[in-house]
Design a protein around this nucleic acid. Structure first.
Lengths: 212, 212
DNA sequence: TAAATATTTAATCAATTGATTAAAATCATT
DNA sequence: AATGATTTTAATCAATTGATTAAATATTTA
């Protein structure tokens, strides 16, 4: 009788708090903060509305929690890679492109969710608390990049140029998928296939952009 | 005595309807549909709330109007260029990159506004009514591209690849500016300068991506 | 088992928000 | 100026929404 309760097979696999959190991620990311009703989250989680305020104090608090986690998921793709000491720049880029491909295939709404909530600075405090700047500029990757520039391998430009190109080429097609699918006259499956082909090109492309 | 009224010097330069429209563009684009209060728009326009519903029937109707115009502004950058018959592919890309640079320097929120409102398909009907597909695939640019591929100038890939790379390189840095500024440790002015430098590189980069 | 603690529910509140209404003000026409 | 149409305003409504409360149920502890 020590344990709480024999969990049901499916719907009770997660604790109430975890159910709310998962539902919140889903609803916040697809509808955005302002369009999300706490009742939608409660319904999605299959719990009473009051429970949401029992576990998290408010909609805003719950959102902050979800947002921080989402930002973490998004940034981790980079942070995991950029401090490896035994891989080349090319290998790092390939790893980052692959990781974004995997992440955004599962959660294509992630970048727009983050950027659209960030835009007016309502929740923007979050960004400054994550110490992004240090993570990038003090990384092993930053040293590698500097060295490559010194050796004349790359044009002498701030590293952020490469980050822009890498992200633009790897992430933007996921963000603009609803539009690009129509323009390119592709269904979801064809678009997937296209993105998979691109994946293998992006590393070379990024390298090329740094050479000219 | 034929004319309506001698307009005031500044604040009455525009008709009431125009004032509401301009205020709506501003508020909708910075806060998004759901976070926008019709009262905010009325206040921004300096008019009574009821007037908003007098000129436009509802918030949704006003939004549709703003959204259609915004989509138009965003697409026009391309549509203006892609049917020119006496410019090269390189010149067209340069023109598009320049036009996006000008547009997004003035209105950096535009892409995220469009994509974030499009994401859940609530207002998505709009997209399908614009005949995007035809505009692109029946353009002179499409013929030029096809020819370049036949001549072996570009790798044989659907034109949408180029559109993705062009937009990713030219537009994404504007969308992610709040994040990239922190990562790159740049203030707004430095970021502007950086973007201006990039502008002159993007055409070459895009061409390169199509050659390998 | 009994008491104490933690979790869950139904009902309700107060504030916000999109929209309407009826009256007032302005403008155009004669 | 008198009349009619258009534009503007203040007041208000009904629905939604985030949050709370007090009671009920379940779980842990003594």
């Amino acid at each position: 009788m020590a344990k709480k309760k024999e969990m049901g097979v499916l719907e009770e696999k997660f604790s109430t708090e975890e159910k709310i959190r998962r539902a919140a991620i889903k609803v916040f990311q697809t509808k955005g903060y302002a369009a999300t009703r706490t009742r939608d989250i409660a319904a999605e989680a299959g719990i009473n509305l009051a429970l949401l305020n029992y576990y998290f104090r408010s909609k805003e608090k719950l959102f902050e929690s979800v947002m921080l986690e989402s930002m973490g998921d998004f940034m981790q793709v980079m942070t995991v890679v950029i401090n490896q000491e035994n891989t080349s720049i090319e290998e790092k880029i390939t790893a980052i492109v692959g990781a974004y491909h995997d992440l955004l295939s599962e959660r294509p709404e992630l970048p727009i969710f983050i950027l659209s909530e960030l835009r007016n600075g309502n929740h923007g405090v979050i960004l400054k608390t994550t110490g992004l700047k240090k993570i990038y500029q003090q990384s092993f990757f930053a040293q590698q990049y500097k060295l490559a520039v010194e050796k004349g391998k790359f044009v002498d430009r701030p590293m952020i140029w490469m980050v822009m190109n890498l992200m633009g080429l790897a992430i933007f097609p996921f963000m603009a998928a609803p539009m690009l699918q129509i323009v390119g006259d592709l269904d979801a499956k064809q678009y997937d296939k296209l993105m998979k082909s691109r994946r293998d090109c992006i590393t070379n492309w990024v390298i090329k952009t740094m050479k000219s």
